[in-house]
């Protein structure tokens, strides 16, 4: 009797751990889709943006403004899914770089929507959000002179100071996605608004979800 119970328990545990939810299935579909897209692009000679690079310096240029840490897990681009991509040089509003307040919200006709995050997370999980990133990539590839600004926002629940840092984390993650999809990193700026500029003014879980977002602005020369 006892061994039978143990057997059933093992079956239940194994079956539950093997169960795939819709999110995992979607992740697999996305990965397969990316591979297929790359194959198709290669056939048509559109693989210039994702060519293999030989060193960090070739990819991001030398660090000449600050002394970076030199640890393997921070610099090993091939091994790391969380790639650190240096910001564009210079200060916006100076030295010929447009001030970021000259960037504007894309017209509704472009269909650029905010993307949203889970609590205290910086990665995108929703299918619609991933599709939005693809839409932005397509726009930036079609308009190679356009500059792009990503604003990271948070909900109101954590402290103001931590939220400022989390906002910048989110903005840089979106930037990373765009660069991974072939957009030149020197065209993309980031900014954190923390919890300082909420989109929804209420204090419910629904309001918090609306506020955990990234917004986008563009500047066309």
């Amino acid at each position: 009797m006892k061994s039978r119970i143990l057997l059933w328990a093992a079956v239940v545990i194994l079956s539950s751990s093997c169960h795939r939810n819709s999110s995992q299935s979607w992740e697999n579909v996305k990965t397969a889709g990316r591979h297929m897209q790359r194959g198709v692009d290669s056939l048509w000679g559109k693989d210039r943006d994702s060519r293999m690079l030989s060193s960090d310096a070739e990819f991001i240029g030398p660090y000449d403004e600050f002394i970076p840490l030199n640890d393997a897990d921070l610099r090993g681009l091939a091994k790391n899914s969380d790639i650190a991509l240096p910001q564009p040089r210079g200060i916006p509003g100076m030295d010929g770089i447009p001030a970021l307040d000259q960037f504007y919200t894309p017209p509704d006709a472009w269909g650029f929507q905010f993307v949203h995050f889970e609590t205290d997370e910086h990665i995108l999980r929703e299918k619609a959000d991933i599709q939005m990133i693809q839409q932005i990539v397509a726009y930036l590839k079609k308009n190679p002179e356009a500059l792009f600004l990503i604003e990271g926002h948070t909900d109101e629940r954590a402290s103001a100071s931590y939220n400022m840092a989390l906002g910048i984390r989110r903005a840089n993650y979106i930037r990373q996605l765009l660069v991974k999809n072939g957009v030149n990193l020197n065209r993309i700026y980031t900014l954190s608004r923390g919890k300082e500029q909420p989109a929804a003014l209420g204090h419910t879980p629904s309001d918090w979800k609306q506020n955990r977002r990234a917004e986008f602005k563009v500047f066309e020369r």
């Binding site: 403004e65 600050f66 002394i67 970076p68 840490l69 897990d73 921070l74 790391n80 899914s81 969380d82 650190a84 910086h122 100071s161 931590y162 400022m164 840092a165 989390l166 984390r169």
Partner: peptide, 16 residues
């Protein structure tokens, strides 16, 4: 001199 990156960690947020 140049600023120094003092601490970083993949997928982590540093603050304050």
């Amino acid at each position: 001199g140049k600023p120094c990156q003092l601490y970083s960690a993949p997928s982590a947020t540093q603050a304050s």
